[in-house]
Design a protein around this nucleic acid. Structure first.
Lengths: 176, 176
DNA sequence: CTGCTATATGAAACAATATTACAATAGTTG
DNA sequence: CAACTATTGTAATATTGTTTCATATAGCAG
């Protein structure tokens, strides 16, 4: 059963985070990646909402928890998490959000963890609500052929692509 | 006759700039926009190559010409030019490049200037060479239906979208 | 277990990018 | 010209990200 991409503003977010963290643990274990304490904490902060969060917000957030870090520590964790495909970076706002697409099926169906679904090999497509800040990540496969067509016509060799779509999400349209 | 999106590295760029500046002058006049001396100078700097240029590069560049400005002056001009659709901003690299699409047909065919072709109403699509830095801007209309489909399925109301495709351009593939 | 090595984190300074707030000037309109 | 709006100047400051070098810790070979 398919979840809505943009959950209600008042939904119970604890399921989202716990599923995500569960997946992250399993995934890193299987992939031989080290989800250290720091990296895990940073991921928790990023996954704390469906909005994108800035590096310095994470920093402040951790400081409030008593964990005072240098910016570089956060950036290093973010780099790791992004590399692992667990989070994405919104280029237009210099901020980060958790990838939800990895585990939506897997965990509920008790499927084996499929590694790196959101890998760099297929286009990243994000719907960004400029009202509430929520991000919805969309399957990029559908635009891939189109990108290939465009690229081929210019003999351009594609390595990576990211599509950021800004507008208003369902929840915000409803509550306006 | 269609120009290549990625001209040879050693092409004569003076045609590119002079066409672009000619268009900018006509366009702003017709649209009632004031292409002031400063804005025009900034546009010349941006249009000086097919690569994207950073705000502080422009600043340094102008300083070298004897014109010492504060960052804000450059940013204000960039904002104006972007608003006018004469330049675009690469989100992934915090840099700016000139829109070539406006005048490729118009000037050569002696057509009347068509205002604001690259307006925010249709998706922006850029091919970005990570070797030489050249940018090729592509007609975004072809991906528009796809974006609409995705958005509609989530009841998301689209305002603006930008697709940044990274890879290697023709010229760089040839010379490697 | 011991030491070796690779990986990860800490700490401080700094670089790059962008904005705020307010004053001065230029251009436009009545 | 007077009043008004748009543009630019000036200075300070905010935000985002990196370099460099030192220290610690995990994983592994002997």
């Amino acid at each position: 059963m398919k979840q809505s991409l943009f959950p209600q503003h008042d939904h119970d977010h604890s399921d989202c985070t716990s599923n995500l963290m569960k997946f992250a643990d399993l995934y890193c274990q299987q992939a031989g990646l080290r989800l250290t304490k720091l990296r895990r904490t940073v991921l928790e902060k990023v996954a704390a909402s469906h909005k994108a969060i800035g590096a310095y917000q994470i920093l402040d957030n951790l400081a409030a928890d008593g964990q005072k870090l240098a910016p570089i520590s956060v950036y290093r964790s973010l780099d790791f998490l992004q590399e692992a495909g667990l989070i994405h970076r919104l280029e237009s706002t210099n901020s980060y959000f958790a990838c939800q697409r990895n585990f939506d099926d897997d965990l509920t169906n008790n499927n084996p963890i499929s590694l790196n679904k959101c890998s760099e090999t297929s286009p990243l497509v994000f719907l960004i609500c400029d009202n509430c800040g929520a991000i919805g990540e969309v399957e990029g496969a559908s635009i891939e052929p189109l990108i290939e067509t465009v690229a081929n016509s210019e003999k351009f060799k594609v390595k990576h692509s990211q599509l950021e779509i800004k507008g208003t999400c369902t929840s915000c349209q409803a509550s306006s």
